[in-house]
Write a protein that binds this DNA or RNA. Structure first.
Length: 801
DNA sequence: AGCCCCGGTGAAGTC
DNA sequence: CACCGGGGCT
């Protein structure tokens, strides 16, 4: 039988065998990096490295699970079980559960998701009496998140002149105080948000050298997948842990870094060499996934980026099909054309639905594809969107679980104290919240000692609150003695959620009821799975904490083999929708965002909505580094394809309830014509007189714009009218201030020979005009900067005499 | 306390 | 268009 390393090419094999010291593997798209990483770990184990000493960080928990299974197949299940594998968040959440008390958190701390975090921020804004239109909760949270990912503490933040200046300029001078208050509150309620899982790990490793040493000794061999997507906080954790043995292997592709928006720092990979001068670098450049055409086109796109490692991805696969470009008039027509193309490709080549993927920039684009596929009876599956665990009914029930595990979890109390309705209204909750704030205690302390506070709550409502507290306490006592399924069931029934949803016979109600059942079934599955050794280790720590101290007499009888509800919660809190997906159910076309497609591959890949302001997104266009990230995203999209990539765009689409006109994405133009299959006129005739694809055209009167026929939306948004083709044009209000629209409208009257003054380029003369308004380009010879070609609709010109 | 309707406002990507 | 929050009504 072949040895597993024989399945690798020579560079892959060298990389896999290079186990000692710092290693960086730059892996081009489709170059088999997962395989290398997997075999590298298998090889370590074969060399008798204890699995207990291996840590592998992956991008999703699903990836970790798959890798573990592959390793188990090579070296055996009992061995593989001991490996620590998972995402940064899940691995360090586990370590924090063990060590939490050192940094002042309870071991059973709650993990807040984004919704919880925003709710905390809203409350702080209320307390500080701040306008949530200026301090938008999502913005505030982003700012806090950025700070944490850069390991900037609240104190540090408030003392830093730079951050203070930035916040002054953005009219949000109190952000530092909000940040400090946010951290204080969460500490008090025993809660960590996603960023805390990394931030607090850093605090732990910084302040407790003995803990650092313990984990340095434990994790002697560390590997990090998708290293290009790590942020500073993650970078530092790795650096600290690897400092003693320096057996650190990072794998990544700078060309596929697409998470800068959440703090990922491409410099981590570009600078890795500086941290480890005796680093060994391997470049995996042979692509095994895609055709020559796809690889060539992808290389050409990425070459437009300045910041990158030099590498040459090549393939020995066949030449393959050209990249097909599809033009549609509307978003609906785009859906139809793509669905038809899938239909035809299938019927000609006997291809499975699951060989097709439709990738879009934003989740909101999925609608037209769903409709079109449904019409043709093609099965599809949407990935992403709202995750199972984010659904209201699921979060409601999980909030009961959370509160039972950690009584201090204020967010959960607020969520469920009156759900199902038990007559505890907003006025009452406000009174409770104020009391908690005044005494600097958690909501739970207030409601469980209600009679000690004189809150002016009438006797009837007080009884209801006490009943609620009693119920939670009774579940609390059962936590250590019932398995997760039994207890979850009991809670779901006796809190009234099951009854509430059962009585709701609307389709939504039925679906919610089913979701609750699905959750309970999931818990049953969980209970039936035996624990891994790591889980056992964790379990012992946690059990000692959640066991109520007033019932020590039962300790002897405690059955530690029970899988309890708190364990279940730890297991699922950090699962993402990607992790929960089960790809094996049915043969379906995949619909997902490009981000979600990272790491996947399909025979036929449709990259849709390739329009300026959509892909690349509007928000990226003004900054070079953001635009480069969009380009990497496009690169990721194209390199998912094995046989053919199909690119599509629409010339108009509905956005914000308005018709907007779109231009084809610059990314299409960056691909050489020799790789593309499209009729040339497709691109040129952007504003052709094609049918309107069902959109309204009745705003004309005597061939002129009839203002009265515009919808309110159209009126309030900035709309101009193009007399040459009789169409409405929405000018994006983000891009042009209202004054500049007036200015540039005047440009319409300019003719060759006119002298103009430009804000930046100074004085110049128009030598020629080409194209019809609003696409008119002017060739202008400036006195100081020479010849420029400018689009009149954008250029800020003033005519001079 | 709870429901409904209205209007204002807002869509990138995610652990 | 879709969601959310506020206000008014029951």
């Amino acid at each position: 039988m072949n040895h597993f390393l024989d399945e690798l090419n020579s560079i892959q094999r060298e990389a896999a065998k290079s186990t000692e010291g710092p290693v960086m593997i730059i892996a081009g798209a489709g170059s088999g990096k997962t395989r290398v990483l997997t075999y590298r770990i298998a090889h370590l184990i074969e060399k008798n490295v204890d699995t207990f000493n291996i840590l592998a960080l992956t991008f999703t928990n699903k990836a970790a699970k798959e890798m573990k299974e592959r390793i188990a197949k090579i070296i055996g299940h009992s061995e593989a079980k001991n490996l620590w594998m998972g995402t940064f968040h899940s691995v360090f959440a586990k370590i924090l559960r063990i060590e939490a008390e050192k940094i002042g958190y309870p071991n059973n701390f709650t993990i807040y998701d984004t919704e919880d975090s925003k709710s905390v921020i809203k409350e702080i804004l209320k307390q500080f009496n701040l306008d949530d239109k200026i301090y938008k909760p999502s913005l505030v949270l982003n700012r806090i998140s950025d700070a944490k990912n850069k390991l900037i503490s609240p104190q540090h933040y408030q003392n830093n002149i730079l951050t203070q200046q930035e916040d002054q300029n953005s009219r949000k001078p109190l952000l530092g105080q909000i940040y400090a208050n946010y951290q204080k509150r969460n500490f008090k309620t025993g809660a960590m948000d996603f960023d805390d899982l990394l931030y607090q790990t850093n605090v732990l490793l910084r302040d407790f050298p003995d803990v650092l040493l313990k984990y340095q000794n434990k994790f002697r061999y560390i590997s990090v997948d998708e290293y290009q997507d790590t942020n500073f906080s993650q970078y530092l954790i790795i650096k600290q842990l690897a400092a003693r043995f320096q057996n650190i292997c990072v794998v990544g592709d700078d060309a596929q870094s697409i998470y800068a928006f959440r703090g990922a720092n491409i410099q981590n990979i570009l600078n890795f060499e500086k941290d480890y001068p005796d680093l060994k670098t391997y470049k995996l450049e042979q692509n095994y996934r895609s055709t020559k055409t796809i690889v060539a086109a992808a290389n050409q796109i990425i070459a437009n980026n300045k910041e990158q490692f030099k590498k040459t991805v090549f393939t020995e696969n066949e030449e393959g099909y050209l990249l097909k470009v599809i033009k549609a008039n509307t978003d609906n027509e785009e859906g139809q054309k793509i669905a038809n193309h899938i239909f035809e490709t299938k019927s000609q080549n006997q291809i499975m639905n699951s060989d097709f993927a439709i990738l879009y920039r934003t989740n909101a684009q999925s609608r037209s594809f769903e409709e079109a596929l449904r019409k043709l009876n093609i099965a599809y599956k949407i990935y992403g969107g709202i995750s199972f665990y984010q659904r209201k009914e699921i979060k409601d029930l999980l909030s009961y679980f959370r509160l039972i595990i950690n009584n201090s979890d204020d967010e959960s109390i607020k969520r469920i104290i009156n759900y199902p309705a038990r007559g505890i209204g907003q006025t009452t909750i406000d009174k409770l919240t104020v009391a908690a704030l005044e005494h600097d205690i958690s909501l739970w302390t207030v409601i469980s000692n209600l009679k000690e506070f004189n809150l002016g709550i009438n006797a009837g409502i007080s009884t209801k609150i006490n009943d609620f507290v009693t119920q939670i306490k009774s579940f609390n006592l059962l936590l250590a003695y019932k398995d997760a399924y039994e207890l979850a069931n009991q809670i779901a029934v006796s809190c009234g959620i099951v009854k509430e949803l059962y009585n709701d016979k609307t389709p939504e109600g039925v679906s919610r009821y089913e979701n609750i059942q699905e959750l309970l079934n999931g818990i049953k599955d969980f209970v039936e799975q035996p624990r891994t050794p790591q889980e056992n280790e964790l379990n012992e720590v946690i059990k000692s904490v959640i066991d109520p101290s007033n019932s020590t007499e039962f300790n002897e009888e405690t059955d530690y083999s029970l899988k309890t509800l708190d364990e279940f919660m730890q297991e699922i809190t950090l699962l993402t929708n990607v992790d929960k997906e089960d790809d094996k159910e049915g043969d379906k076309v995949s619909l997902m965002t490009v981000h979600a497609a990272k790491g996947l591959e399909f025979k036929y890949v449709y990259i849709v909505g390739l329009e300026e302001n959509l892909f690349p997104s509007q928000l990226s266009i003004s900054s070079r580094s953001d635009l480069e990230e969009e380009r990497r995203l496009f690169y990721v999209a194209i390199t998912r394809a094995e046989k053919q990539a199909i690119l599509s765009f629409a010339t108009m689409r509905y956005r914000f309830g308005n018709i907007t006109y779109c231009e084809p994405s610059r990314f299409i133009n960056e691909i050489d014509d020799k790789y593309l299959d499209y009729p040339k006129e497709n691109i040129q005739k952007k504003f052709s007189d094609d049918s309107f694809g069902g959109y309204r055209t009745n705003y004309l009167k005597n061939n002129k714009l009839d203002e009265n026929a515009l919808t309110n939306n159209e009126k309030t948004n900035v709309i101009t009218f193009n007399p040459s083709n009789k169409k409405l044009i929405k000018i994006n209000s983000n891009l042009s201030s209202s004054s500049s629209i007036l200015d540039t409208k005047l440009n319409k009257n300019l003719i060759a020979g006119d002298w103009v003054l430009h804000d930046k380029f100074g004085k110049g003369q128009i030598s020629a005009l080409e194209g019809n308004w609003p696409e008119t380009k002017a060739n202008i010879i400036f006195e100081n900067v020479g010849q420029k070609s400018l689009l009149l609709k954008f250029a800020r010109l003033n005519k001079i005499n």
